[in-house]
Amino acid sequence: MKALKLGFMGVVAVLMLVPMYLLVVNAFKAQQDILTNPFSLSPDLLTTEYLVMALSNPDFDIVKGYAVTILFVVLVNALSILLACPVSYVISRRARRPYRLLLLLFVAGTFIPSQVLLIPVVYTLKFLGLMNSIPGFVLFETALTLPFSVFLYSGYISTIPRSLDEAATIDGAGVHRTFWSVIFPLMRPVVATMVILNTFSVWNDFANPQILLGPSSGLYTITTGIYAAVGQYSTDYTVVFPTLLLAAAPPLIAFVLLQRYIIGGLSTGAVKG
């Protein structure tokens, strides 16, 4: 029974991993070899030529793509923490009705599909003069993180004893001081979860950057760049595999290193629907 189960899981594991194996080995092969010997790992076939070519693809500067995407990840995370934490603190410390309604308003936002918002957001950003700009994109992307962050943070804060706030107040700290130097440091686990979640959702987002940072902005994230580079040559596998490998490598490496935290963070996020 046990051997049967192990055998079965082994087969499943191989099936799950085969696509990734093919992605990795074929990123180092010529078109003809990909077509005839996709599984081969023979050293004579392997070359880094195509990976180097992908790095200098004229359609998509992937190094710049990394930089732009990392910039967005950092900005959205920082802004999201800065905005969502204090409001969650107020919400979870006040029992009065307006604050409960505020929580309800934010939570309602978790169930709005972001593609549905894209059309009107384009015109909202145009009206604000922020269309095709980094601030416009970062603000929208941050707004998308707020509902779930507020939900998660306010739930977490209500488990932190109020006596800590009171002690800080008696020592003369104002609300801001109380929050940032007493409560916020205690929120580390939940903030870490949210940072993991937001990092992956910004890194992997496609529709929003594709439309809010149109071609006129000249800004490509990893995903929109891949779309520009791979979309048109989808049968030239010497472009497809190396480019996809370069895009897939960072999240996969992060996953290998931080597996437990990432599984925890992303599955918490799944609950937001």
Partner: peptide, 11 residues
């Protein structure tokens, strides 16, 4: 600040 961003970008 959070409410304003939420209202402008989502509501």
């Amino acid at each position: 600040p959070a409410l304003a961003l939420f209202v402008v970008m989502i509501v």
